[in-house]
């Protein structure tokens, strides 16, 4: 299992009883590509933030890659996220004053710093380092970013290019879980198709699970597990 949520409840203010999320049981299998459909305000981003460990649920357990992320210390959770998860957002995927390469390097830096400290010796780290530069170039080429754009500040890239660099950034640490939060909503239809193809292909190749939330039903065809947030979230049922 990649992700298992058990009896998770979350409300932004603890005093009120109106939960944003109330999930009895929900899980995503390994190597599964899961599409979660929901309208704006249904709690899609909240769900992803709980899975990513950016916020803690009020009750319940969150297990990601067989580790209880809700029980980790703050710094352990930061390391776990940097090493095991890749994030892709609707926009602002990149630090705009850094180049494409530097954005990916930064993500790699945080991912590597975490392994370096725990498992690998210096020797292995440097080998890891070299291979990762090759990985970076390969990823960028594969995602159709031309070499002349690699050193440009991210702010000078088109939205489509930025989103594809975002994919490269998300995959650089070879994560086992990719979390995508409406990454296509700022793209036109042609870009959406190539973006989705590249994203799902990379997931298949690396064996990463994908959790993709969107309000756009038309993207369903790229996934093998499609769910509606209203079906998962008892809180939204109660409201309707």
């Amino acid at each position: 299992m990649s992700v298992v949520l058990e009896d998770v409840k979350f409300a932004y203010s603890k005093s009120s009883n109106s939960n944003i999320l109330d999930i009895n049981h929900w899980s995503v299998d390994e190597k599964e590509k899961c599409f979660v459909y929901g309208v704006s305000g249904a709690g899609k981003t909240t769900l992803l933030n709980i899975i990513g460990g950016l916020i803690k649920p009020n009750t319940g357990s969150v297990t990601v890659l067989n580790e209880r992320i809700d029980q980790m210390s703050n710094s352990a959770r930061d390391k776990f996220r940097a090493h095991n998860m890749g994030y892709i957002f609707q926009q602002f995927n990149l630090i705009h004053y850094l180049s494409a390469i530097e954005n990916i390097e930064l993500a790699h830096h945080f991912g590597r710093a975490n392994i370096g400290r725990s498992k690998l010796s210096n020797n292995n780290t440097s080998r890891h380092n070299k291979s990762s530069t090759a990985d970076m170039c390969e990823l960028l080429e594969r995602l159709g970013i031309q070499e002349k754009d690699w050193q440009k500040p991210a702010s000078q890239l088109s939205v489509g290019q930025q989103q594809r660099v975002g994919i490269a950034r998300a995959f650089i640490n070879k994560p086992k879980l990719i979390i995508a939060d409406e990454p296509t909503s700022a793209l036109d239809q042609t870009s959406v198709n190539s973006f989705m193809t590249q994203l799902t292909e990379l997931c298949d190749e690396t064996g990463a699970s994908l959790i993709f939330v969107s309000h756009d039903n038309q993207l369903q065809s790229y996934f093998n597990n499609v769910q509606s947030l209203t079906d998962i979230n008892r809180a939204s049922k109660g409201k309707v």
Binding site: L54, N74, F92, N93, L106, F110, A113
Partner: peptide
């Protein structure tokens, strides 16, 4: 963004 990619 830095937080999400792992900055403490």
């Amino acid at each position: 963004l830095m937080r999400i990619i792992g900055a403490s």
